[in-house]
């Protein structure tokens, strides 16, 4: 009795993930030829995973090197329960995978670097929204600013790590503004934003991070600024606010975000 299509597809899927799985009769011709063809399929599948993940995680790839990254992608791709049809979304789970990946146990900063990279990757395709500008804020009375609740732009993400993930990321950019840190163990806070459609990563001081985290948690501006200066006595709203506005961190009040949050 011939094999059912469903059974054949299951065997084909199994053979794509495991070189030891039987591949006989998956294609016409001798078994040895079929095995060679399935091995090609398997190789292309792994190469596609490495390419898609490398597109989202170029810094992680540079950190570990091409060979290691390809092997990591192969392992991740095999262990991962694929549900999406869009390779741009493959890799959301890679930071958590990296965090528990034995061969990277000696490089504990990798997972947080990967988390920052995923935010950068998502920022490229985040929904559009009109950014709040200074002219709009300038017409709001000072007494109303204190209670004003701002919303972060869909492309914005905040990160905090015991590792120097901001410096590590920045050092891997084409016109690297900073050198690789000699010592990765250093508290850092980073901001991902997309001013004028260009994704950027900024290093944040503790105070600025506290303010933006408070705004992200829907606390009003007055409370957020107070959280900042409590964390960092040198925090200066007159310096920070213009930079936040120039980076388009907030959504203008009357525009929808364009996607559910």
């Amino acid at each position: 009795m011939p094999e059912t299509l469903a059974r054949l597809q299951q065997r084909f899927g199994a053979a794509l993930l495991d070189a030891a799985a039987p591949s006989d009769r998956l294609f016409r011709g001798p078994d040895a030829h079929t095995a060679a063809c399935v091995a090609l399929y398997r190789g292309n599948l792994a190469a596609n995973w490495a390419k898609a993940l490398g597109n989202a995680y170029p810094v992680l790839r540079a950190l570990v090197g091409e060979d290691f990254f390809a092997a990591l992608a192969r392992r991740f791709g095999r262990d991962y329960a694929h549900v999406e049809g869009d390779l741009n979304t493959l890799g959301a789970g890679l930071p958590d995978f990296v965090a528990t990946f034995g061969p990277l146990a000696d490089h504990p900063y990798m997972a947080d670097v990967a988390r920052l990279e995923w935010s950068v990757h998502r920022a490229h395709s985040a929904a559009d929204a009109h950014a709040l500008d200074a002219a709009t804020l300038a017409v709001i009375a000072a007494e109303d600013l204190d209670g004003l609740t701002l919303r972060l732009h869909p492309a914005v993400a905040l990160h905090e790590s015991p590792w120097a993930i901001d410096a590590i990321w920045l050092a891997h950019q084409p016109a690297a503004p900073v050198p690789l840190p000699a010592e990765p163990r250093q508290d850092s806070r980073a901001l991902v934003c997309r001013p004028r459609w260009r994704v950027a990563v900024r290093s944040l001081r503790a105070g600025e991070h506290a303010a933006l985290a408070a705004i992200a948690a829907a606390h009003p501006l007055g409370e957020a600024l107070e959280a900042a200066i409590t964390t960092d006595p040198d925090f200066d709203p007159a310096d920070a606010l213009p930079r936040w506005l120039a980076d388009g961190l907030f959504i203008a009040p009357d525009t929808p975000t364009g996607e559910p949050t």
């Binding site: 200074a134 804020l137 300038a138 000072a142 600013l145 204190d146 501006l221 007055g222 600024l225 107070e226 200066i229 200066d236 709203p237 007159a238 310096d239 920070a240 606010l241 213009p242 506005l245 120039a246």
Partner: peptide, 12 residues
């Protein structure tokens, strides 16, 4: 803090 914020916004 709000006064400083207003100054920053106004400057831009």
């Amino acid at each position: 803090l709000i006064a400083a914020a207003v100054a920053g916004i106004a400057a831009v």
